[in-house]
Nucleic acid binder design. Structure first.
Length: 646
DNA sequence: GTTCATTCCGTTTTT
DNA sequence: CGGAATGAAC
């Protein structure tokens, strides 16, 4: 039966509500996939009676593929997706009841742009939009507005109204609208309850209040719930996720069972042993131990470098060496923060190592690409004033913020209507320019050209291309190349919304944040920047246990080799500052870890400093330790405990 | 109203 | 250091 171990098999066959506590690499996805496939193959359920939520769209895709390879093409009838995507479908199917039409989702950048324009106009200048957005989103997710200030409530009100006039929902609305629908229309809820006989929830440790309510509403006597998660991998509390839901599962769902998967099939014993050692430092946790199935002589390496340049070069050297021996191995470099990712690019380029950046960064985040995308969005939706205000500035047309603000405050649903209604309040020259532009946009919107060809025209005829420098022109060309496969603008917009950028080549070194690496695995994983303040991050002081879980997630991504590194001096804000190694390094234990230095030269004869013993001269250097003469006293100390002096 | 130069200021994670 | 806000000059 799908080649499962005893515990996994028990989970697959279980007919009650079930919580699977699945440690990293214990075959969590395999178990869900097997369970769904088993129910369908046994004729116990039809594909459309199964609903499965995943954490990312990528995970949904993967799950779909794997079920398909078990049961064949009718797997496509299973409802698999993120909460947000499933909710969007439900909202769209019930638009009349919710008093909406042609609903669209407002992506993050547009939410921010909208807030910015509200804040500026309302003279709440002291409030920072990005911070404000976070506060509002969190309040909406938790459905608790008590601790918002009067100003914030005021802004939220305007924000919601503006969303409504655009027929748009933000991410939090998707869930709350669905909950609203189910709570107000029990007959609708009953329909969903009857349809979905098996409900699977992946990454249950990272659900929030709204998602919890959603699950509670949908689950009932006549259907079966199967939740999978690992409390040690909860890393999204900043988004309102709460570990308490997984901890209380069995009390909450009466008659439910629990199965714990501890047998790890992913990583070597050395990686498992240091991961176990690390996570044991958390106090709030269910005792659980990963058991290795792969044994190896290769230790987890902890490297120290003098500075970031040496660290990144050291990483590149190791990669280059490995590429000669194992050209097929998958390699990732995982960072605590997204901004660290760009720092290593230079080293990778000069070492001639191909890489891909995974996440929302890259081409789509470049300003000029966002500009051209705002044209696409506006062509698809003439009421999209946010896209309009962006494309109005690309290229510059001599119409600025003041005019734009008047337009956005005017009556009318489409931008054209607004412009016509604001005619008297703006200069006649601006008015004429605006109408011309709208006219041109309408022509493009009605054009019968294929989408890529149309966009090429837009790029040229709008004057956008001409206004850019060479570098930016290249990015636009790359973007045009990338849209070749799309039939029309709607298909492309849909793609933008739901697909994480596919890494173009699995053989490239993958660069991403630890958060983005959740659920993935690689043969070799590099973890740079393990320093106090960076990882654990200085702003996460109050939540060290979550940072430690994050470190645990990072380490357990590695199959055969993990390299942790830190530096003695790191540049921040244009200045070098000295650095303390991350507490997580010593928490890896010493049993499965080797301490090394990126410095190729031996330290013999060098003057060094030790925290306890002070200054000394190195007499001999080993792999992990050095013999140092402190005054008259010879001591053996760990390489990581000494630093070289100039 | 727009553009360019100068000053200021902050450290995170994302469907 | 680098992005965002501010202010001065067309």
């Amino acid at each position: 039966m799908y080649d499962l171990n005893a515990q996994q098999k028990k989970a697959v066959e279980c007919k009650n509500d079930l919580l699977i506590v699945a440690g990293a690499g214990t075959g969590k996805t395999k178990t869900i996939v097997s369970k769904i496939s088993y129910y369908i193959e046994q004729g116990l359920l039809l594909p459309h009676q199964v609903l499965a939520t995943t954490f990312t769209n990528k995970a949904a895709q993967e799950m779909k593929h794997r079920i398909e390879s078990n049961i064949g093409p009718h797997a496509s009838l299973i409802a698999i997706g993120t909460f947000h995507k499933l909710c969007l479908k439900i909202v769209q199917d019930n638009e009349e009841l919710l008093n909406m039409s042609k609903v669209q989702v407002l992506p993050y950048e547009d939410q921010l742009a909208l807030l910015k324009s509200i804040v500026r106009h309302m003279q709440y200048k002291s409030l920072k939009p990005s911070h404000l957005l976070e506060v509002l989103q969190r309040a909406k997710e938790k459905d608790v507005f008590d601790n918002l200030t009067v100003d914030e409530l005021n802004i939220l009100d305007i924000y919601q109204n503006r969303l409504k006039s655009m027929n748009a929902l933000d991410f939090a609305d998707l869930l709350s609208k669905t909950i609203l629908l189910w709570e107000n229309y029990p007959s609708v809820l009953d329909r969903y309850r009857e349809q979905y006989k098996l409900i699977c929830v992946d990454e249950y440790q990272d659900i929030n209040e709204a998602q919890h309510r959603w699950i509670k509403l949908l689950s009932c006597e006549t259907n079966q719930l199967c939740c999978v998660g690992d409390p040690d991998q909860a890393i999204y509390s900043f988004r309102g996720s709460d570990i308490k839901y997984i901890l209380q599962f069995n009390e909450e769902f009466v008659g439910s069972e629990k199965i714990v998967l501890e047998q790890n099939y992913r990583s070597t014993d050395k990686i498992i042993s240091s991961s176990n050692s690390l996570i044991r430092y958390n106090r709030k946790r269910i005792e659980k131990n990963l058991l290795p199935s792969v044994f190896s002589d290769r230790y987890v390496d902890v490297f120290v470098g003098m500075n970031a340049k040496e660290e990144y070069k050291g990483i590149c050297d190791i990669i280059a060496k490995d590429r000669l021996i194992n050209p097929q191995s998958t390699i990732a470099i995982l960072f605590r923060t997204a901004s660290q990712i760009n720092e290593i690019e230079e080293s990778l380029i000069s070492a001639n190592i191909k890489y891909s950046i995974v996440g929302s960064i890259q081409l789509l985040d470049r300003a000029e690409v966002k500009d051209i995308i705002s044209y696409v969005k506006f062509l698809a939706n003439p009421a999209d004033i946010i896209s309009f205000s962006r494309l109005l500035q690309a290229p510059k047309r001599g119409i600025g913020e003041a005019t734009m603000e008047k337009i956005s405050l005017a009556d009318g649903s489409t931008v054209k209507e607004k412009i016509i209604n604001v005619k008297d309040k703006i200069s006649s020259a601006s008015y004429e320019k605006l109408l011309n532009l709208i006219g041109q946009l309408e022509l493009w919107a009605e054009s019968k050209d294929a989408f890529p060809l149309l966009m090429e025209k837009v790029v040229n005829e709008s004057g956008l291309f001409e206004s850019l420098d060479t570098n930016r022109k290249e990015n636009i060309m790359r973007w045009l190349d990338s849209i070749g496969e799309f039939k029309d603008k709607d298909e492309y917009i849909n793609y933008l919304l739901w697909s994480n950028i596919k890494s173009d080549d699995d053989n490239n070194v993958q660069l991403m944040t630890v958060h983005a690496a959740k659920g993935l695995e690689f043969d070799i994983v590099f973890l740079p920047g393990w320093e106090e303040g960076v990882f654990p991050h200085i702003l996460a002081r109050a939540n060290i246990e979550e940072e430690r879980r994050l470190a645990y997630v990072a380490l357990t991504r590695a199959k055969s080799y993990a390299v942790v590194s830190y530096v003695q001096s790191r540049m921040q804000y244009g200045k070098y500052g000295s650095v303390i190694p991350s507490r997580f390094i010593k928490e890896l234990g010493s049993q499965s870890v080797q301490f090394k230095s990126f410095r190729s030269k031996s330290m013999t004869g060098k003057k060094v400093f030790h925290d306890l013993f002070g200054y000394g001269i190195v007499e001999e250097t080993g792999m992990r330790h050095a013999q140092v003469l402190f005054g008259n006293e010879k001591k053996i100390v760990e390489l990581s405990s000494i630093s070289e002096c100039k």
